[in-house]
Computed example of a mutant assay.
Amino acid sequence: MVNDLEALVIPLIVAIAFVALVVTILRSQNPQRRAAAKARERAAEEADPRIQKS
């Protein structure tokens, strides 16, 4: 029985990692979050004196 549980540990870890990856991808594809991130990036670029404005 212990061998059966040991055989399931690696596939279980891989499955959990895969689910976490899918959730992360889906969250990053959220249009509102993406728009907010672009707005933050634009504001940071405008506030940065090192970036030349043309």
Rank of each mutant, 00 (worst) to 15 (best):
M1K: 00
M1V: 04
M1G: 10
M1P: 04
V2C: 07
V2W: 08
V2S: 07
N3G: 13
N3L: 13
N3P: 11
N3S: 15
D4Q: 08
D4G: 06
D4F: 04
D4W: 03
L5Y: 10
E6C: 04
E6S: 00
E6R: 00
A7N: 13
A7L: 12
A7I: 15
L8W: 04
L8N: 04
V9C: 10
I10M: 14
P11C: 13
P11V: 12
L12P: 02
L12H: 09
L12K: 06
I13S: 09
I13C: 09
I13W: 09
A15L: 11
A15R: 06
A15M: 10
I16N: 01
I16S: 02
I16D: 08
I16W: 04
A17V: 14
A17Q: 12
A17G: 07
F18Y: 07
F18K: 04
V19D: 00
V19L: 14
V19Y: 06
A20G: 09
A20C: 08
A20W: 12
A20P: 05
L21F: 14
V23D: 08
V23K: 05
T24I: 11
T24R: 07
T24G: 05
I25C: 05
I25E: 04
I25T: 08
L26S: 13
R27H: 06
R27Y: 08
S28G: 06
S28F: 11
Q29F: 02
N30Q: 03
N30L: 05
N30G: 03
P31R: 04
Q32M: 11
Q32D: 12
R33M: 13
R33S: 07
R33Y: 03
R33F: 06
R34W: 15
A35K: 02
A36V: 07
A37G: 09
A37V: 09
A37E: 09
K38F: 15
K38Y: 15
K38S: 14
K38H: 15
K38T: 07
A39S: 10
R40K: 14
R42Q: 11
R42I: 01
R42S: 05
E45D: 14
E45W: 13
E46M: 09
E46T: 02
A47E: 04
A47I: 01
A47Q: 03
D48I: 09
D48W: 01
D48F: 01
P49S: 01
P49I: 03
R50K: 05
R50N: 11
R50E: 14
I51V: 07
I51S: 00
I51W: 02
I51G: 00
Q52P: 00
K53E: 00
K53M: 01
K53I: 00
K53T: 01
S54Y: 11
S54M: 08
S54K: 01
